[in-house]
Write a protein that binds this DNA or RNA. Sequence first.
DNA 1: TAATATACATACAAGCATGTATGTAAGCAA
DNA 2: TTGCTTACATACATGCTTGTATGTATATTA
Lengths: 207, 207
Amino acid sequence: MVSKTKEDAELTRNRIIAAARAVFLARGVSKSTLEHIAAEANVTRGAVYWHFENKTDIFHAMREQVFLPLIDQMDDRLGLTIDNTENPLTQIENSLCHTISELNENIEMREIYEIMMIKCEYVGEFAMVLDQILNNCSSLIEKIEIAYQRAQTQNLLASMLSPHALALDTHLFFGGLLHMWIKDADGSKFRHQAFDLIKTHINLRRK
Amino acid sequence: MVSKTKEDAELTRNRIIAAARAVFLARGVSKSTLEHIAAEANVTRGAVYWHFENKTDIFHAMREQVFLPLIDQMDDRLGLTIDNTENPLTQIENSLCHTISELNENIEMREIYEIMMIKCEYVGEFAMVLDQILNNCSSLIEKIEIAYQRAQTQNLLASMLSPHALALDTHLFFGGLLHMWIKDADGSKFRHQAFDLIKTHINLRRK
DNA sequence: TAATATACATACAAGCATGTATGTAAGCAA
DNA sequence: TTGCTTACATACATGCTTGTATGTATATTA
């Protein structure tokens, strides 16, 4: 049965990534074995080693599947790509809410977030992932700041605080929310009111 | 040289915990071996197994050393224990700032935070630690809420938002800040301005 | 259609990590 | 001082994991 065309191989590769996601989620990245992943994908370690160098390689592939598209989406929702007339504060609010919606609906994305937040040890090779995350944060903060800048220009802000300070506060709030959202697995503490929390956060800024 | 009195044994136990902290930090909890820990503590695995059941047991012991005292401190700083006349918003601000100071000065606490945030996979036996963390969050939110309640009573708040909503927002902000503080190892992005971020966050609430 | 590359499966060797079992010297209580 | 317990060290058996080497059937290309 070892007869695979290129498309079949691509499918196998994706199956391995999906399997890795399930295994990482269940056992944590460190305690996940290539044998576990192979079994979950109904292949042998031979197939895994054909497509990937090692576990780290699979991890990065899994991560890129979701995080690369995510960056661009954020631009659009913050109204940075097209001229727009909408309330910038509402745009920030919608952007944050949309990300939460994504987590609700996109199982793949939710699981990868969970893996990266509480099923992964950022040590050795994985340490550089933290740097990437920090960089993504910086660019996200800048984007939020631009939106707050527009809000300030339109005289929509309740306080005298700088757009930069507001953007940092919003970013930290949202980072905290994401962490709690993930950790609150049964949804009783944070998930059920995530949208309200975001609204409150933004309302605090509205004039 | 195997002659240890009870006090010596207690010292050995603490040395093992301290060694575990160093090893966890360097290699991550999962990839840390009892042999690594024993070597770091200048004992053998025999000593480790005498004092602890397994790695998980060491982890919990390490965690309790820092987190149990932490809870009580928070009460005091939020002014919940004694009658006081100070501005509640300032008390919240000071409480958060004090925690950051602790992270700056208390290496042990900082390292344990780092281990728990980015060097540990919350899976299997460790999953229940997440529940404990969530519970600690709930009680912390309640304490902050009481402080905001006092602020509202004293007509110090800039917005009409409920003390509960404000407390949640503050809690999420601070959770995000702690995460970023830890991840920002070189301090260039968040650590250097942590106090300012807290001040900004509270100023947003001051009338 | 012959040669080569692809896409795996299987087999093997080596190193760890764990838990436990056993050894042992010193402390401690009667 | 005798006997038991403490506080470890040492040794052993077992079970993973990993990486690589090898086998093999099919696809692809010249």
